[in-house]
């Protein structure tokens, strides 16, 4: 398998007391969350509870009105609330956005190459492209096809592969299961796990699909109406009343 120029530095993300929203809507109320190097953390919450808003705060797309988002790289702290999205991507953070957000009228390969837009990523572009084609065989077969013409599962693979093209250390994934059949959801989650294990990625994943999410999670946070109501490891999550009510249909 071709080498992937993956993470090498020690990394941690620390979100403290973040308040954020859209004009009149307050979407996050004092949210705190931590991720250590190599962890997979899942952010659980049903529709409209603020999962995407929190991920967007990490990427600099939504600006918190107060609180901090700090990325620590080998002992150097970066205040993400003061950096542009471009700078955040350059630090090694990538996001697979909700709804995949591919460039539908560009080919599969053009989508992938744009994933390496940052000058730092371009140096490793051949290596990373070879890696993506090796890992996602279907993308290689369809590399000249327009992204918008692919099936939902293939589009999700492309969205993940595109995010990997920037050699991220921290990967944010927003609801990878949406719109996919159960089998494809399972495949996608397995793929994220495989990538994570192979390359020591640190992953923050927003999900509603509890059963799939805990297959790969180390820890989980439950967010309700913009507040974190529970934090714990997978075993604790499974025992949690909220999880029983919302996700397991018992309670």
């Amino acid at each position: 398998m071709p080498a992937y120029s993956g993470p090498t530095l020690a990394l941690s993300l620390s979100i403290r007391e973040v308040e954020a929203g859209y004009d009149a809507v307050r979407a996050l109320h004092g949210v705190s969350l931590d991720i250590a190097q190599g962890e997979t953390v899942v952010l659980l919450g049903t529709n409209g509870n603020g999962k995407s808003t929190l991920l967007k705060c990490v990427m600099g797309i939504v600006r918190p009105t107060s609180g901090s988002v700090a990325l620590d790289l080998d002992g150097v702290a970066h205040d993400l609330t003061r950096l542009s999205t471009e700078e955040i991507v350059s630090l090694g953070v990538a996001m697979v956005p909700e709804g995949r957000r591919l460039f539908p009228r560009l080919t599969v390969e053009e989508n992938l190459l744009l994933g390496a837009f940052r000058p730092q990523a371009r140096a490793d572009i051949r290596k990373n492209l070879a890696f993506c084609y090796e890992t996602f065989k279907v993308l290689k077969e369809r590399r000249r096809q327009l992204a918008g013409l692919m099936s939902g599962g293939q589009q999700q693979m492309l969205a993940i592969a595109r995010a990997l093209m920037s050699s991220p250390r921290l990967l944010l994934v927003d609801e990878p299961s949406v719109g996919l059949s159960p089998l494809l959801v399972s495949n996608t989650i397995s793929m994220i796990k495989k990538l994570k294990d192979l390359y020591g990625l640190t992953v923050l994943m927003a999900e509603q699909n509890f059963h799939q999410a805990i297959r790969i999670a180390d820890r989980g946070y439950i967010i309700v109406h913009g507040e974190i109501v529970f934090v714990g490891d997978v075993a604790a999550l499974e025992q949690n009343e909220l999880v029983k009510n919302y996700y397991l249909g018992t309670g």
């Binding site: 956005p97 957000r101 744009l114 990523a121 595109r162």
Partner: peptide, 20 residues
């Protein structure tokens, strides 16, 4: 050139690629 083609297709996604 690719970014020029992409920018009207999905501005947010292009931002996530690290382009302004």
């Amino acid at each position: 050139g690719s970014a020029i083609q992409a920018v009207a297709q999905d501005r947010l996604a292009l931002q996530l690629m690290g382009a302004d």
